[in-house]
């Protein structure tokens, strides 16, 4: 009698072990963290990838480029999305923690400078945009608009979008103190859509009908002007992995998805610009 119980327990234990092993081997997990700008691409890639690989479990968080690097550095994620390149200091602390960041450029993105659709202003020069953001120009009439105070909306300093804008447009000059800060592209769009005299910048993929993109130095942001390098405020979007992923693995498939035909379609459907045609 006692032996029977022991046998039952043994076989049960073995079954449980086998089950666990099966679960571990069958379910691979990809953890992705970082930029809110690259987030939509990662999400769409994940949806697409899960269709053909239902056993892969993909978690995506969007906490900003800076936090993405932190996650990668601490081994908390497999792929860090960045809307800017990794800073030298960040690179160094990654290497110090035995993490070797490898960059994969998954798409290009233009930063659209947007205003409310009711705003008569259609075009600004890089210089004017910089002056608005540094606080030299504070009224729309100075750039050919109505007599109204400009509500300057900037992304928070956590975001790669802010870093890109600060570098390309402001040339690292400090942003005006009266500028408002918002935590995401979506929030920037909402603020401009709801505020008559607001100006903001956001990833081209986020600019829909509720806001009006301005032409910068006479050039409207679109796939063509960005990929040809004519539109001045554009940047590559990155996914960073620790070392180059094992070829044929799930992470490898994921970070090379943008090179396939479907991947390129996903990228352009989202309003970003594919790396290759």
């Amino acid at each position: 009698m006692k032996k029977d119980i022991a046998n039952v327990l043994k076989s049960g234990f073995a079954a449980a072990l086998a089950f666990c092993a099966a679960a571990v081997s069958a379910e691979t997990k990809i953890v992705i963290d970082g930029s809110t700008t690259v987030g939509p691409i990662a999400k769409a890639f994940a949806d697409f990838y899960k269709e053909t690989h239902p056993e892969v479990n993909i978690t995506i968080s969007e906490s900003g480029s800076g936090n993405g690097v932190k996650s990668l550095m601490n081994g908390a994620c497999d792929i860090a999305n960045l809307s800017r390149f990794m800073k030298p200091a960040e690179f160094k602390s990654c290497v110090d923690k035995k993490i070797l960041p490898v960059a994969h450029v998954v798409a290009f993105d233009g930063l659209a400078v947007v205003v409310n659709p009711d705003n008569p202003v259609k075009s600004l020069s890089m210089r004017q945009i910089a002056d608005i953001y540094t606080g030299k120009i504070t009224n729309w009439k100075e750039v050919g608009g109505k007599d109204a105070k400009i509500v300057v909306v900037s992304r928070d300093t956590n975001s790669g979008t802010y870093e890109t804008f600060n570098e390309l447009v402001l040339k690292k000059l400090p942003v005006s103190k009266s500028a408002e800060y918002v935590g995401s592209n979506g929030q920037a769009k909402m603020r401009v859509a709801a505020t008559k005299n607001a100006i903001a910048y956001l990833g081209l993929g986020f600019a829909d009908d509720s806001v009006k993109p301005l032409s910068v130095d006479g050039i409207l942001p679109n796939a063509k002007s960005v990929s040809s390098g004519k539109y001045p405020i554009a940047r590559p979007l990155f996914m960073f992995t620790d070392g180059y992923p094992k070829m044929g693995g799930d992470v490898y498939n994921f970070v090379t998805l943008h090179l396939t035909k479907e991947g390129r379609e996903i990228v352009s459907d989202l309003g970003y610009i594919p790396v290759c045609e």
Partner: peptide, 23 residues
């Protein structure tokens, strides 16, 4: 009617970039 920033919001907003690695 003017925007302001608070201590808590600053901590939340700056946290991501404020690692030991960035100064």
């Amino acid at each position: 009617f003017e925007p302001v920033r608070t201590l808590t919001a600053t901590i939340a907003g700056e946290m991501g970039e404020a690692d030991q690695s960035t100064g």
